Simulated assay, not measured.
Amino acid sequence: MATVASAVLVLDSGEPEQLALFYGALLGGEVEYNPKADRFEVTAASGARLGFRRDTGFAPPSWPRPDDSQQTHLELLVPDGDLDAAERAAVTHGARPVDTQHGGNPDLRLYCDPAGHTFTLRAG
């Protein structure tokens, strides 16, 4: 029997509400403040949950960093054929392209969110 019921990936940010609104718009999710956890949370229609916590000393990650290239990133799954529309939505909401060619794989595109966390849009 599992003792853990669910999981929430929590990203630090200097502006957690702004970051929650970005991912809420991108995922079509509900944005709420959770006073018990002192963070903003997004719950997508799919059930995926993300949290955003204030870190007053937050420094955006850099990609790639030769000394520490394995950083956590989000992989957002997009239905086949909808990658271009997802890319437009991500950029419209404030994402910055990092590598839209992603090694020549047409099914992957890499971005930074408004706080500098990397995420991938992946078809499939």
Rank of each mutant, 00 (worst) to 15 (best):
G51T: 09
C112E: 11
P35S: 10
L83W: 03
G29T: 00
Q70T: 08
R53I: 05
S69D: 08
R65E: 14
D99A: 09
G28D: 12
P64G: 10
N34L: 10
S46K: 03
V78A: 01
G104I: 04
P35L: 15
E15D: 12
R88H: 13
G51D: 07
D12T: 02
R53P: 00
G116D: 07
F40A: 01
Y23L: 02
L83P: 00
A90Q: 03
S62K: 15
T92E: 14
Y33Q: 06
G28T: 10
P35W: 15
E75Q: 15
V4Y: 04
D68L: 12
P61C: 14
T92M: 14
E15L: 13
L108A: 02
G124Q: 13
S46Q: 03
M1E: 07
T3K: 12
T100S: 13
G29V: 01
A123D: 08
R39L: 15
R122K: 15
R65L: 11
Y111N: 03
Y111E: 02
W63Y: 11
G57N: 14
A123G: 11
A2N: 10
L9V: 11
T72Q: 13
F58L: 07
L108W: 07
Y33S: 14
L21T: 10
N105C: 04
L110G: 01
V10T: 14
R39K: 07
D12I: 00
E32Q: 10
L83H: 01
L77G: 13
T43M: 12
H73M: 09
G94Y: 07
A7P: 02
D80Y: 12
D99W: 03
Q70A: 12
R49F: 05
L50M: 03
D113L: 08
A44M: 03
P35D: 10
E32K: 10
L83E: 02
E15F: 06
F52N: 00
A123T: 06
L83Y: 01
